[in-house]
Write a protein that binds this DNA or RNA. Structure first.
Lengths: 244, 244, 244, 244
DNA sequence: TATGAATGAGGATTCATTCAT
DNA sequence: GATGAATGAATCCTCATTCAT
């Protein structure tokens, strides 16, 4: 429940004059993420952002050039932060399903704690044309690649020949072959996660870990298994993703 | 007397003066959906919409009041159309998984055929504040309810006691009990579908049926089954969702 | 001393609403020429122009697109007006020197009556980059061509062999040969005229006809002749250029 | 310690800190003339000037007070330089026409070598209101006076009675009498020179001396003489204006 | 001497919206 | 029913100029 420092600074920042540039820039980005996340890119006004940042508009332009550049800077910063949060939440020495679970938990936790940032990444950036969408697409592809790799790792962990019989005559260890299929799956998983993020944040009493569990049930066990009483569960007693 | 080309509506309708109001309104909505879908809500200008509709701006205001109202009207019309398309694509007498498959097929087909409408619903409406987001949320909830009901039906079709053992001591026929869990699953499924819609439309050579199949594999069989060689498949030879 | 109608309209125009577009456009151009001529292109503000024109700023943009376009429209209108004034002031059946004299008179008269227009053409347009300078260059070239032709006509009227002996072995009737020389002369003449225009307008008591006479002395007779008592004079008693 | 390239003054002066004020000021004026000449007064930004001068903006203000003052300083410096160049190019012991020729040659040479300075004097200063225009007018009057005096000297050198017969009953040696006429002539000559300067600089292959020759032909011999085969020529074999 | 940090003021441009016919 | 004419209110962005060190 502790808000990270930068979210605080954007709000209560005493209008201390003459701060070093790097600091001011972060304050501006904080304010911009807030405003962009809440109003949307186009509806956000540079005036409002400058005011929330506690500086004059020209300074925003001096440091960040233009509304587009400011938005891009927001996207980049938040994309990086999200990817790092997910990575940090995963212990790479665990089995694939555990890694996925932890990653999802970290993802839900981070997006839950930074709703404006999530709005910027998930909604605003994708709604306003190539320059911005491309920025998120890059991040999304990073995550999709991460997930894809987990899925393939999971496949390798499962009985190779079992997988092999489904796609007869193909080496399941070859990561390239079911590529389009896997891409679709990863896409679906990430989409489901994005969607659940909104749901979890909007539904009171749903924790990131619960949301991650739900999605694992859905994704790993599948509805079919689930209905037949084989829900997914972490293998040992779960210490949980080590995120706050 | 032939009017110059410029005054012909770009939508293909000849600008015969004095059309019945209902027709004109539909032309305006057609134009609006196109512009909103392509430019985004804020970037869309009433000028452009009026021009594309082949009418003068005051007429747009006369019929539809304001930009907000126009946008809302677009959302409502397209939401209704999408829900109807999905409903129409499902034969209610089939088993739950088949119904789900057909529904997904219809969904991907409709969104694929109406990309601007889908952009309005999926991106624009959610990106521009409560009044509009609420409108889509209503539609979404309708679909989520539909899916929830299918999931529960599926559970009922599967062995009751098997499901029961997962959540020991609970009556699986009681649709309320695992409510939150099921709601989460439905949410995830719908989210995955929404996400795949964008992916399928953007990836050449992926048909609605393929997209539906990918998602069924993911959702029904689960990644676990999939990796062990048990993909989901329609029970008999599939005639496919009867969508165009 | 009578100001042309359009100069009046720009000023005292009663703010009669709802005028036809063509009229409003002229009012805007009148205002723009005034402001551009007095303040300069960059220092002129669209606000001020709109106010002087008696309309709101958006209307100026609706009709004339942008400051650049507005400026260009001013240049074009005034360039055309100036060229027409000069042409109208010349009777083509007179000898070359008389034509030149009349043309100069018309030029000084027109620039004297429209100082803002002259400032736009002579100063502002040339000071603000290619798009605009090119516009005036076109006009200037038209005038230079006109003058060049008069010079050559004058040469033909004078003893051909006399001219021929100066540039031995060349056919004086061939208009191409001393091209660069003639271009330089025309350039100098026009430059002298432009410069005298400012001088004549700034020196009280100097009429356009006097200024034209001075320049004819300078250009046609040359300082050398002048000093030796052979000033240029119209051949018969001069009725003067028939300009107001 | 070598400073990074970016902090090297673009004018070629290494940015050694703590320069004597006079030097720094000249660097600033150099930069300002360049920027003003190329961008125009209004479009020139103090930022750009400071950067080109290799100093910080506050220093420019410390030394030169304001944009207006800076511009004025540029005008003054360049006006002085131009007048000096012309004076230095003239040997006062030659006949009037030779002096004129040399002066013109020096003028074309100097403006050709300092196009930005010439742009500042000829275009920018005149285009931006009284305070600046007055500054150039002063210089111009100095030159016009110089030329006027040459014309009168030329008249005195020519046959007094010849001149006298043109303006019968007036003493040609009285420098005041044809005053207005002579002023007009000088004005025209200077204007022609200014105009030719731009033309000569823009026309490749035209040297200062050629430009001076063209103008002497025009001004001294006059078009009439020229057409009758009596071009002006320096009396003896010309050593040329002794300018660099 | 020299500068990084900061801003008040203003300019071009666009847009949703409304009269008057 | 339909439209040409018109605008109030913002929005992005830039610039000359000044502190505080």
């Amino acid at each position: 429940m502790v808000r990270p420092a930068r979210t605080l600074s954007a709000m209560g920042a005493v209008k201390t004059k003459r701060m070093p540039r790097a600091v001011r820039e972060q304050q501006m980005l904080d304010a911009a993420v807030r405003i962009f996340g809440q109003r949307g890119y186009m509806a956000a006004s540079m005036d409002e952002i400058a005011e929330l940042a506690g500086v004059s508009k020209p300074l925003v332009y001096l440091y960040l050039n233009s509304k587009e550049d400011l938005f891009t800077a927001c996207i980049r910063r938040e994309a990086k932060a999200l990817v790092e949060a997910v990575r940090a939440g995963v212990r790479r020495d665990l089995p694939a399903d555990r890694q996925l679970w932890e990653g999802l938990g970290a993802f839900f936790a981070h997006t839950g704690e930074n709703p404006d940032a999530w709005s910027v990444l998930h909604l605003q950036a994708r709604t306003h044309g190539e320059p911005f969408a491309a920025e998120v697409t890059a991040m999304r592809e990073e995550i999709v690649a991460f997930v894809t790799q987990l899925i393939l790792a999971g496949a390798r962990e499962a009985l190779p020949q079992a997988f092999g019989c489904a796609r007869a005559g193909r080496d399941p260890h070859d990561p390239d072959l079911p590529e389009r299929e896997v891409a679709g799956l990863a896409e679906a998983l990430v989409g489901a996660a994005e969607s659940l993020a909104a749901w979890a944040n909007a539904t009171p009493g749903v924790t990131p870990r619960q949301a991650a569990g739900t999605l694992m049930n859905f994704a790993w066990a599948g509805l079919g298994d689930l209905m037949e009483g084989r829900p997914w569960a972490p293998e040992e007693e779960p210490p949980g993703p080590h995120v706050a």
